[in-house]
Amino acid sequence: MAAASQRKPATLQFFLSAFVVLWLIAAAFPFIWTLWGSFKVELDFFSISDWTNAITGERTQTTHGSPFTDAGYYGAWIQEEFWRNVLNTTLVCIFVVATSLTIGTLGGYALSRSGYKYVFWLLIIALIFRAMPPITLVSGYLPVFFDWNVWGFLPTAIIVLVAINQPFTLWMLHSFFEGIPKELDESAKVDGCTQFQAFRQVIIPVMWPGVVTTGLFSFLLAYNDFAVTSMVLAEQNRTMVPAIAAFLGTTYTEGNVMFAVAAVVSATAPLFILVMFFQRQIVSGLTAGAVKG
């Protein structure tokens, strides 16, 4: 819309810019505010007397001798051992992303290379599975997990998250592989490769952009999950999100809200960095589904 004939009158441009600024404030300000406030004491972040205390850190000054304090972070990471939860989340994310990409790539590639009718039905079933709220599936797992004594461990949660991830991974990778010309692996097969060799030698080298995008969304699903991890993991194996939820129960009574604030900021930071580096892939992943329908 950059054509000269489309140039907008100044007032309209002003209103549009003002609207964008308003939205930016709504989108970004809560994060900045919470990041700033996480270095204060509770009486500043939740100030009864004067809200500007949260900016200047008046009480923090009197308590800790400086307008900034890492007491919240110390309390969360060391005292409440939040580092364990961070470690668990790291493990869960690495294994979920690696596994679901491995099996999802094979499946998505195979579906994109065969024109059978039932492939469509497989994709439809995957779409239905994608719509199932994870929490309803969890109530199906629990009795079995209790019976088999596998409840509470990280591998259990990892396998469940991989499976819940599959429908989405399959859809994304399927539509991505559709975009890679069939002639590539066809010609490799003519030269005497088996299907798997063709996949390994010809497709794997060119599939990374799609795999990275899909992997990002797998990562987000594993990282952000609450329903599965909070129900399937035992207390000592909790990942970050259920740990934060558990903080809420204890901190409101003990007055350690700042621990939860620090934990929340710690959990947001990796996502922040992720968006910074992979903004383009995230946007393309979000729109890929829309364009394909």
């Binding site: 099996i103 195979a110 599975f129 199932m132 599936l137 199906g140 396998i159 469940v160 819940i164 798997f196």
Partner: peptide, 20 residues
């Protein structure tokens, strides 16, 4: 090719729905 992902979905999505 489809077996691993199909199995994962069968065991952890289809079966739980039946179980529920």
């Amino acid at each position: 090719f489809f077996l691993p992902t199909g199995l994962a979905m069968l065991i952890f999505i289809a079966a739980p729905i039946v179980s529920v």
